[in-house]
Amino acid sequence: MQLILVTGAARCGKSEWAEKLAIESGKIVTYIATATVDPADAEWEARILRHQQRRPGTWQTVSAVEDLASRIDRSQPSDCLLVDSLGTWVANLLDRSDAEWEKLTDELLGKLTVSFATTILVSEETGWGVVPAYPSGRLFRDRLGMLTRQIGSIASTVYLVTGGHVLNLSQLGTKI
């Protein structure tokens, strides 16, 4: 199993780094998109289009707006899965109860630990600033922060991308 976590701030280059790692894997790449297209949001559609235009045409793209674990479960050892992004996936599921959320994350973590594919997950860092003023913002921050931490604890490599630079936290840091 090769599980890689790429985390960092907004617009810092996380996706580009993850894409580079996927290319370097030499495997068949499947891009797992967690975002939904909203025709009423031109700016969001433009962001999605920029991501699509950067990716090689040989990559397959699949959607996992909710059921990310089953997408990972379908992988083969010859696959490289690039999941972009955990933050969007968490946002898609904010309406779930704590019990439902725990079940979903347990399923995801379980599939990640038994997958033979190279799996690269992109996650946004939250909580480095102000505490969100609204309950939904705090719920998002807490769920994403905990999920990122859980995946980081089982990942073979964790990268922090910030200011256009990449740090290999697995080499520089110590697991808690």
Rank of each mutant, 00 (worst) to 15 (best):
G137H: 00
W89M: 03
N168Q: 09
E107M: 07
F116M: 14
E66L: 08
Y134I: 05
N168G: 08
V62W: 05
I23H: 10
G87Y: 00
L5P: 07
L112P: 04
D142F: 00
H51W: 13
V29G: 05
L108W: 01
L5M: 13
V6H: 11
R55C: 11
K14Y: 11
K175E: 08
G110S: 14
I48G: 07
R47M: 11
R71P: 00
A42M: 13
V62Q: 13
G87Q: 00
I28Q: 07
T34H: 01
E45S: 15
A18N: 05
Q76K: 13
R71L: 11
R143D: 05
A33T: 10
A10F: 02
D79L: 05
L93S: 04
I120P: 08
P56V: 10
G13P: 14
V131C: 02
P39H: 12
I151C: 03
W101R: 08
T118K: 14
V6P: 03
V114Y: 01
C12S: 15
D38Q: 15
T30I: 14
T157S: 08
T61M: 15
V161M: 02
V166Y: 07
P132M: 10
D73Y: 04
E102Q: 15
L5E: 02
Y159V: 00
S85C: 15
R74M: 14
D106F: 02
N92K: 00
R55L: 12
T61F: 14
R55G: 09
W101V: 11
I151Y: 06
T126C: 08
V130S: 04
M1H: 09
D38A: 12
D106C: 04
Q2R: 15
S170R: 10
L86K: 01
S75E: 02
R149S: 06
R71T: 01
P39K: 12
L139M: 08
E66A: 10
D106G: 06
P56L: 11
Y159E: 08
I72S: 03
A133T: 12
Q171S: 11
A69Y: 00
H51V: 10
D67I: 01
L172T: 07
A22F: 05
F140D: 02
T88G: 10
L82R: 07
T157H: 09
Y31K: 09
P56E: 08
E19K: 14
I151H: 03
E24H: 11
T36E: 14
V90N: 00
S70I: 11
L5W: 09
G145E: 02
D95R: 01
V6G: 05
T148S: 06
G110Y: 02
A133E: 12
R11I: 06
V114P: 01
D95M: 03
L104V: 02
R149D: 04
V114G: 00
L68W: 03
A18M: 08
G26K: 11
G110V: 09
L86W: 01
T126D: 01
T157A: 08
V65W: 06
E102T: 15
R50V: 10
I23T: 07
L167S: 15
A33P: 06
S25W: 03
W128A: 02
R50S: 13
V65Q: 12
A35H: 12
D73I: 01
I32G: 04
V37P: 07
I48F: 14
E125R: 04
P132V: 10
G137T: 04
E43V: 14
D95C: 01
A18H: 06
G129L: 06
